[in-house]
């Protein structure tokens, strides 16, 4: 009788312990199974173009540049090359 009751108590305690362990493992399991965000590389680029002929190129942003700044003359004509926009371009990094 004692051994039977002791066994029941042990089993109950072990089950409680197992459930506690599982509960503790849930956050870890969730973090492991969650899809990892892809590594992204960011680069600030500027769109430089000629408002007269529409010629446009995208290049790396240079500190001190701003939208509307004249940065040269158009290679296709006499118009001025101005910074038309500055924005962040995102690229997925290779694994």
């Amino acid at each position: 009788m004692l051994s039977q009751q002791f066994d029941l108590l042990t089993v109950a305690l072990l089950m409680a312990l197992l459930m506690l362990l599982l509960a503790a493992l849930v956050p870890w399991l969730l973090s492991v199974t969650r899809p990892k965000p892809k590594a992204v590389r960011e680069e600030v680029v500027e769109l430089v173009g000629c408002p007269v002929c529409g010629h446009e190129i995208s290049r790396k942003y240079e500190k001190g540049d701003y939208v509307g700044k004249v940065v040269g003359t158009c290679p296709r004509g006499d118009g001025a090359l101005v910074v038309k926009a500055i924005y962040v371009e995102k690229y997925e990094s290779p694994k």
Partner: peptide, 23 residues
């Protein structure tokens, strides 16, 4: 600090595009 346009600048950029980036 770096002087890069921010998202709130859509209004000024639309205005600037409309005037073809003039002074």
């Amino acid at each position: 600090a770096s002087g890069v346009p921010i998202g709130d600048g859509v209004g000024p950029l639309v205005a600037k595009m409309l005037v073809e980036w003039r002074e």
